[in-house]
């Protein structure tokens, strides 16, 4: 072992080591607080991560590990532990976002658990290195390969780091009173630059049940417009997406329509990744039906 060339044994050992490190970190530091990554930390982390990946790629001939990470012998064990950790997540009931994990390993809030995050991080490193390698080689036969790896890399990195900047608030709107305050899931109140007045709320009857809010929106920037919001038909106002969330009758205010306001500044980056994956899938389909997909090993 550890004599060149490394094969599955080394790949598996690295993954096991990673899991052990994850467990140690989890037990000593506790679950990860993604809130610490709020802008601009996440942007800096993302840039540093990309620079480091390029550096690792450049040093691949000096440091054998970096070369090894681009091989199937590293990829297969990584996928195994990714499946393993995700399987634990699928078999463990997850607590709501507002709560902390209920077990020492953090498995009841898997997205904040060190072993899970480290394994996905390791996969992101491999995806990044492999993307760089094939991007620089630019072999057209490898297009689905590049699209899949780069797409998944972008989705994981932007999705994870971007989650720290995501805002998800609910606003109770009623007739004749403009509302600009909204609360998050912890009950904290935010004052927004958007004021919403409910003009009408109704439930359309069968065959197609619909919940419809007609609203009047005014913003600090001077927007003054009337909209209709339905389930599946959100509106977009100055970086916020406004969804129909719920409704209730209030003895004083009358009908109250609850709207959900979501701001996710990293969404365009995630969508770039999703579209890369989509194109990768299309190419994979075309390629698979025409010729054998082969990938050269180093």
């Amino acid at each position: 072992m550890w004599s060149k060339l490394w094969r599955f044994k080394e790949g598996v050992t690295i993954c096991c080591g990673l899991l052990i490190v994850g467990v140690i970190l989890q037990l000593s530091l506790g679950s990860i607080s993604w809130g610490l990554f709020a802008y601009p930390v996440n942007l800096i982390v993302a840039l540093v991560f990309c620079v480091l990946l390029f550096a690792m790629y450049a040093l691949r001939k000096k440091i054998y590990l970096f070369l090894f990470l681009q091989t199937y012998y590293a990829a297969v064990p990584t996928l195994f532990v990714v499946v393993f950790m995700t399987l634990i997540m699928g078999l463990t009931r997850q607590v709501p976002e507002t709560m902390d994990a209920q077990d020492p390993m953090g498995f009841t809030y898997m997205l904040r658990s060190w072993p899970f995050v480290l394994v996905y991080f390791y996969m992101a490193v491999i995806l990044g290195l492999v993307s760089i390698k094939h991007f620089l080689l630019l072999n057209f036969r490898q297009i689905p390969f590049i699209l899949f790896h780069l797409g998944l890399f972008v989705v994981i990195v932007a999705g994870t780091l971007g989650s720290a900047d995501m805002q998800r608030l609910t606003m109770n709107t009623s007739k004749e009173t403009p509302e600009w305050r909204a609360v998050d899931n912890k009950g904290e109140v935010y004052e927004l630059p958007i004021a919403v007045t409910l003009e009408d709320f109704y439930i359309a009857e069968p065959p197609q049940i619909k919940y419809v809010s007609k609203v009047h929106v005014i913003t600090e920037k001077g927007l003054d417009k009337h909209y209709q919001i339905e389930v599946n038909k959100p509106i977009r106002v100055e970086g916020w997406v406004i969804y129909q969330y719920s409704y209730y009758m209030d003895s004083e205010q009358g009908m109250v329509s609850v709207l959900e306001l979501v701001k996710d500044p990293w969404l365009p980056a995630v969508y770039v990744g999703l579209i890369l994956l989509f194109m990768g899938a299309v190419f994979l389909f075309v390629n698979a039906s025409s010729k054998e997909i082969k990938c050269r090993e180093i």
């Binding site: 599946n232 899938a281 994979l284 390629n287």
Partner: peptide
């Protein structure tokens, strides 16, 4: 390969839909 290609597209259409309906992809 073809099954996985379709599965990927299925997942992605689900993601785009979820974004429109619930605000999560």
């Amino acid at each position: 390969y073809v099954g996985l290609a379709f599965m990927t597209v299925g997942m992605l259409t689900g993601a785009f839909w979820a974004k429109e309906a619930w605000g999560y992809y």
